[in-house]
Structures are given as structure tokens and as C-alpha cells.
């Protein structure tokens, strides 16, 4: 093998590894961040993987329990808290170590140290503690998730219906102003979404649609109809006209042909396309802030709750929930790249 070839091969693998690291590493650390307890977060440097359990030692001095936590970096038991109040221990264990115990359990475990010297215990960490906390401090998170899904559903429905009709017209018919249409659809995306949301508030209030998901979807659909029209026209162009013509020849009407021939062929691509509409709705928080602040979506809720404050591990937990649809999206969309973007031209 020539040196040139070896160089090429090496560059090839370096790029691949870079891509993998650039994407997967942040995700790995991010997800593991969402599983840390507070104590671990401020232990620095800490292990890459979150702990599953803690080793603790309890001693009895000065009529107080003294709680030590094992530090495996430095191999010793670090004194964390001493008090005679069992409640304080319970809260400490929960807040700092994500260990959920009742006062009785603590009392019965610790009490042996009064007579028999240090007591050693291994407590299991509640790995989902941050997620539970997230749901409890944002008391309407489940409602918000539902809201996000509904808003996204409406957005998909509106933009796919209107967008694919327009896309079909572009793909199959000639009409005046056709070559300007793509550019004008682009114009729609140039106006910041926020900027439409502000004046839209007045109209939505008039229609009684403020603080509703349908109202939100109306605004989300603005940018998405244009995108959907673009992409679906690319999809329809990829479907041979002759297939439709054959159906017309055999006696079907244009509309029947569309339903029976074109739509089934375009369907997978349209599903993939609808993912853009889904994400447009799911990812937004500012439009929701303006139009539906009393009835937030998940993204808005997280922005509000953790936007500029929030501890590392709690923010991470919230964001992990937000990211899950992203994985579904990429999984679906990777097979349809050509169909979606193949014929998109300005």
C-alpha cells in the first residue's frame, strides 16, 4: 500500500472517530450528569459513571451521630454531617446523596453505633432521583408533555395538509408565478417567528385561542407549511408521473389516483417530513412563552424552570426528557434524506 493510501485511510478514520466523539461523548456525559447526586457533582474530579450506591460510616460522639461518606478517590471516610436530629440526616441523605430512607430506618441502622463502635452501611442510590425531583418541582410537567404532544400534533396536521397540497401543485402543474413560489415560501421563514407571535397574540385573544395548543399550532405552522410544501414537492417529483397516468388511464379520477397511488407512495417520505413539523413545535419555547404562558409546553416549562438557574444534575434530567423525541426523529429521518431533500431547489 502506498503512503498516500495509508494517509487517506488514516484521515478517513480520524474523521469518523471525531464525529463519533463529538456526538456521543457529550451525550454520554450529559446523561450521566442527570444521574449524579449533588454530592457527586461537587466532588471533583469525579468518576465518569455515576455511583450506584454509597458506603457510609456512622459513629457516635458527643451524643451525636456523625455521618461519614466514603471517598474512593482518596480512600477515606469524610465527615459530612453531625447532628442529633434524625430529620436532618434524612434530608441530607436525600438531597445530597439521592438516598431515600425513612426516619425509622435511619434510627434503627444508626443506633448500633451508640454501643458497638462505628456502623458501616451501603445504601443504594435512587438513580432517578433527579427526574423525580424535576417532576415534583415543576408540578405540571405531565400536563406540559401532553401539551407539547398536542401542539405538535396540530402542527403536523395543519402543515402537512396545506403544505402537501401546495407541494403537489408545484410538482405536477404549471401555473403563473410557479418559479417565484419557492422563493416566496422562503420569505416566510425570514420573518422571525417571535415577531409573528407578538402581533398574533391580539388575533388569538380575539378568537379565544390564546393559551391553547391549537392557537400555538397555528403560529408554528406558518414556517412549517412553507418547508413542507418544499419538501413534499420534492417527494412528489420523485414519484413517476406515469404511475399516476396509468391509473387515470384505467378510469380513476385525479383525486382517487392521488389517494390510491400517489399518497401511499409518498407516505413514508411525508412521515419523515412531518418530523420537521413535530420538531418545530416540540423545540420551541419563545412562541409558547408569548402565546401560552399560562399553559406551558414542556420546552417552555424547562426554559422557565431551569432556564438560567437550576443545578447541573436537575437541568440535565429535564433536558434528557426533552431530547428523547430527537432520537426517534433521527432514526426515522436517516432513511429518507434523498426523498426529502433530493429535488429541493430554489
Amino acid at each position: 500500500m502506498s503512503t498516500k493510501k495509508i494517509m487517506a485511510k488514516t484521515t478517513f478514520y480520524i474523521i469518523i472517530v471525531t464525529v463519533l466523539i463529538a456526538v456521543l461523548l457529550p451525550f454520554f456525559f450529559f446523561v450521566s450528569s442527570s444521574l449524579y447526586s449533588s454530592y457527586e457533582v461537587y466532588q471533583f474530579p469525579r468518576s465518569f459513571l455515576p455511583k450506584m450506591s454509597f458506603d457510609i460510616m456512622v459513629t457516635w460522639e458527643d451524643d451525636m451521630y456523625q455521618l461519614h461518606v466514603y471517598d474512593d478517590e482518596d480512600d477515606f471516610y469524610e465527615l459530612m454531617i453531625y447532628t442529633s436530629n434524625i430529620d436532618d440526616f434524612r434530608i441530607f441523605l436525600k438531597r445530597e446523596l439521592s438516598i431515600q430512607l425513612t426516619n425509622e430506618e435511619i434510627e434503627s441502622d444508626f443506633s448500633a453505633s451508640k454501643t458497638g463502635g462505628p456502623v458501616y452501611e451501603t445504601y443504594k442510590k435512587d438513580l432517578l432521583y433527579n427526574f423525580k425531583t424535576f417532576f415534583s418541582i415543576t408540578n405540571n410537567a405531565d400536563k406540559a408533555i401532553l401539551n407539547s404532544v398536542i401542539a405538535a400534533g396540530w402542527t403536523i396536521l395543519i402543515s402537512l395538509t396545506l403544505g402537501s397540497m401546495a407541494g403537489y401543485a408545484v410538482a405536477r402543474y404549471g401555473f403563473a408565478g410557479k418559479n417565484k413560489l419557492n422563493l416566496s415560501l422562503l420569505l416566510v421563514r425570514m420573518f422571525p417567528a417571535v415577531a409573528i407571535a407578538i402581533p398574533m397574540l391580539v388575533y388569538l385573544i380575539k378568537m379565544g385561542l390564546n393559551n391553547t395548543m391549537f392557537g400555538l399550532a397555528i403560529v408554528y405552522s406558518v414556517g412549517n407549511i412553507a418547508l413542507t410544501a418544499w419538501i413534499t414537492s420534492s417527494i412528489f417529483q420523485g414519484i413517476n408521473v406515469e404511475l399516476e397516468e396509468a391509473s387515470v388511464v384505467f378510469g380513476a379520477s385525479r383525486f382517487q389516483t392521488f389517494l390510491k397511488i400517489t399518497l401511499p407512495l409518498a407516505f413514508p417520505g411525508m412521515v419523515a417530513c412531518s418530523m420537521y413539523a413535530f420538531l418545530g413545535a416540540w423545540n420551541d419555547s419563545i412562541t409558547a412563552l408569548i402565546l401560552s404562558s399560562n399553559n406551558p409546553t414542556l420546552s417552555l416549562l424547562i426554559y422557565k424552570a431551569l432556564g438560567m438557574s437550576g443545578t447541573i444534575q436537575l437541568s440535565a434530567a429535564g433536558a434528557v426528557i426533552l431530547i428523547i423525541p430527537a432520537l426517534v426523529f433521527t432514526f426515522i429521518i436517516k432513511n429518507y434524506i434523498n426523498q426529502l431533500w433530493g429535488d429541493v431547489k430554489l
Binding site: V23, L279, S285, S299, I302, G307, L322, T330, I333
Partner: peptide, 11 residues
């Protein structure tokens, strides 16, 4: 390689 594109800006 596609995963990051779908992650919400908030996240």
C-alpha cells in the same frame, strides 16, 4: 451524526 440536529435549543 444526525442526532444533534433534532435536539431542542433548550436542551
Amino acid at each position: 451524526a444526525l442526532i444533534p440536529m433534532a435536539v431542542p435549543p433548550t436542551a
